[in-house]
């Protein structure tokens, strides 16, 4: 295809991506280097019958004017990155000095907003991704061995947890594990503690969020593996059987190697999706126990005061996180491409 024709064909979508993905990326980088204007303070003298007192007031008009003139705020360099809500270098150093061991240090820093969000995001990604792959594989094998006639309905119901809107799906689960809901009551009965509440306990909340994560994404792994299982070479399986391979050995040495590229694909997609975990935290109202990077951005942007600079700094840090996650894939692509 000629260069010029190619350009015309990709123009609409590249324009859309340039304007609404690439430019915002630059914009957040710039914003994160600025800090909001301080309020303009003026000193006024109040004179009454008992003498004069000086009071400091916020000059609303001047503040408004200044903010309108320079909407970005004032240049702050890396100030936003280093403050308490982000990398918190000062607090980190203080915690390091005060702590008497690595465990104590970790205990101190997980209460800082950024590290709290980071620890949950990483834990969620690291635990949900492999579990999704394992559960998805088990479902695929089970469905594949079912009678042909019921496979259609099986796939239909298996797709539901994945297709459902994340916010809605997690709400449905949340209502069920409510202390007054069916699962919540069930849990209380199993543990034998009538006051048990998922909302009040951090470990239970983390577990619930992760259970939701696996429930939501296992169907994706299942569908991909199921499609892969249809293309397993029957002859190889047969010859392995003739050679005396047990059922387990056949799975281990024939089926699994065949599915390996699919596993890479699922892991890649799941890493990307789990790293952005967000909606369940809103639905579960879990921010007291678990926050994520995306939630931190959302929290900065919402509410009365939109803290754009702070949100931008967290966004940049998140983008860096995604880049680190993706780097193995990119490096491999780069190498493969060099070989060609």
């Amino acid at each position: 295809m000629k260069h010029k024709t190619f350009l015309w064909f990709v123009l609409p979508s590249s324009l859309a991506m340039l304007l609404f993905i690439f430019f915002p990326l630059i914009s957040i980088t710039v914003q994160s280097l600025f800090v909001a204007h301080d309020q303009v303070l003026i000193t006024v003298e109040n004179c009454g019958p008992f003498g004069c007192t000086e009071a400091t007031m916020v000059d609303q008009e001047a503040t408004e004017a200044l903010r309108r003139e320079q909407p970005l705020g004032q240049f702050g360099g890396l100030k936003t990155y280093l403050d308490r809500n982000h990398l918190a270098t000062g607090e980190l150093a203080a915690a390091w000095r005060a702590s008497d061991g690595l465990g104590d240090f970790a205990g101190r820093i997980v209460n800082l907003p950024f590290y709290k969000a980071m620890s949950f995001t990483l834990a969620y990604t690291a635990i949900v991704t492999p579990l999704t792959i394992i559960v998805g594989f088990m479902i695929a094998v089970a469905v594949n061995s079912a009678v042909k006639m019921i496979r259609g309905p099986l796939i239909f119901f298996s797709l539901l947890p994945m297709i459902i809107t994340p916010l809605v799906g997690s709400l449905i689960l949340f209502w069920m594990v409510d202390a007054r809901g069916i699962l919540g009551t069930g849990l209380q009965w199993v543990v034998g503690d009538p006051d048990l509440s998922v909302k009040a306990s951090t470990p239970l909340m983390w577990t619930m969020l992760m259970v939701y994560g696996v429930w939501h994404s296992a169907p994706f792994a299942f569908i991909v593996y199921y499609a892969g299982l249809q293309t397993v070479n029957k002859d190889t399986l047969e010859s392995a059987m003739i050679d005396g391979a047990t059922r387990w050995q056949r799975v281990r040495y024939v089926v699994l190697p065949h599915l390996m590229p699919l596993t890479t694909f699922i892991a890649l997609i799941q890493l990307m999706d789990n790293f952005r975990v967000f909606e369940p935290i809103v639905s579960f109202n879990a921010s007291a126990h678990a926050t994520s990077l995306s939630w931190a951005i959302y929290n900065d942007l919402g509410g009365e005061t939109r803290q754009l600079n702070s949100a931008a700094a967290t966004s940049v840090l998140t983008v860096i996180g995604v880049a680190i996650l993706l780097s193995p894939v990119l490096v491999r692509t780069w190498r493969d491409f060099g070989k060609r």
Binding site: M17, F20, I21, F23, P24, L25, I26, S27, I28, Q31, P71, L72, M272, F275, R276, F278, L293, S294, I297, Y298, D300, L301, R306, L308, A311, A312, S315, V316, T318, V319, V322, A323, L325, L326, L330
Partner: peptide, 16 residues
């Protein structure tokens, strides 16, 4: 790479 970015990271770029 764009697909991997969480959409919410872009929002603070849109708002101003």
């Amino acid at each position: 790479i764009f697909r991997a970015l969480p959409p919410i990271t872009l929002v603070s770029g849109y708002l101003p």
